[in-house]
Design a protein around this nucleic acid. Structure first.
Lengths: 192, 192
DNA sequence: TCTGAATGCAAGCAGGTACTTGCATTCAGA
DNA sequence: TCTGAATGCAAGTACCTGCTTGCATTCAGA
């Protein structure tokens, strides 16, 4: 079983860096320190190995949940978003590659991004509860706020490696600014 | 010259769909309807052709500018963002691929994303002017607002092809919601 | 001690890929 | 009419890639 685990881990890492075609079976075997033939005996084909590795890498990572009853909204949202940011960042390579290769393998991108969809649903539930309690203006567009927060966190996590030094602020600082701005926008009733 | 243009266009399209390794010289020649040898005689190598094609595709597209003197902010921002959205969307394939292959060719991603950086600078200038005129709260974080708007527009443009049907609203509707929410957040002074 | 499953190693196969060479064809401009 | 540049065509080279085969080695469990 150790061989399987090593192969899956190495394959996911190589896929994130080099894409499907760039992840050759020879390179996988060499990086994992095992013989190429063993790879085929274990998984049958390159495709099987890659699909399993990508799925495993997409799923791992903790999913934080926002409280059922909203309290200190800024604090709760910031700490939740920071965790979510870390989860995305640890998978940023895989997500980038799956998105780029969506046209060749359409099933992978939704799988890799599923964490984001779950987070969005959780966020909408939280906003809905806050709105029901009058903590958010009744006419506020919580949908827009949710999308913007998710997108901002997602983009920050994805581009922080690609553009080093471009962001003078830490993720925590940026997220705090985002959340405070959104809460201000959601709190003021009827500007439209 | 017609041969060069055809090769560059086809190459950019294939690269957006299949990535660097997937864009083979045979495929380029076939799709362009010319002989593979001609490709090498014109560009010398696959690398030269691809770099030139990607650069050309990254640069094209109109750059709208926000007014020097902010007026009807929501209207101005929405129409500007909608144009920006269209520009990004027309290059979404190239951008996705360049981002994914950033680790192998680090120079391409910043090049493909340069339009976004320019747009962000323009937006910050506009927000700064609005703030100087008192149209935005003095303590509002225009930096956070700018990032969020750029990110939201970028993400919408990038994922609209990948997740068809996932967004019930049109780009214009989403952008309008984003802008109105942000303006509300920027207008209310001192919530922190 | 024996057995069988997992693994390693060397070699090879068929097809793809970047790129080259040699020669024939077209065709616009002098 | 001649010339030269651009292009096409057929073939080939060296290397890569997924995958297979045959055989030797290790090693835990009966």
């Amino acid at each position: 079983m150790a061989t399987r685990e090593a192969l899956l881990d190495v394959t996911a890492r190589l896929y994130a860096e080099h894409g499907w075609r760039g992840t050759t079976t020879r390179r996988i075997a060499e990086a994992a320190g095992i013989n190429e033939v063993t790879l085929f005996r274990q998984f049958g084909s390159k495709e099987t190995l890659l699909l399993e590795a990508i799925q495993q890498a997409s799923c791992e990572g903790e999913a934080t949940r926002l409280p059922d009853v909203p309290g200190a909204m800024v604090d709760e949202l910031v700490s939740w978003a920071v965790t979510h940011h870390g989860t995305i960042r640890s998978k940023s390579g895989i997500i980038r590659t799956c998105l780029a290769e969506w046209e060749q393998r359409p099933g992978l991108a939704p799988q890799a991004c599923s964490g984001g969809a779950v987070a969005f649903i959780d966020l909408m539930r939280y906003f809905g509860a806050a709105q029901a309690r009058g903590m958010i203006a009744a006419d506020a567009s919580i949908e827009a706020a949710g999308m913007m927060l998710i997108n901002a966190v997602f983009m920050d996590a994805m581009t922080r490696d690609v553009m080093p030094g471009a962001q003078p602020h830490s993720p925590e600082e940026m997220i705090t600014m985002y959340v405070e701005l959104l809460i201000r926008g959601l709190g003021q009733p009827g500007a439209a």
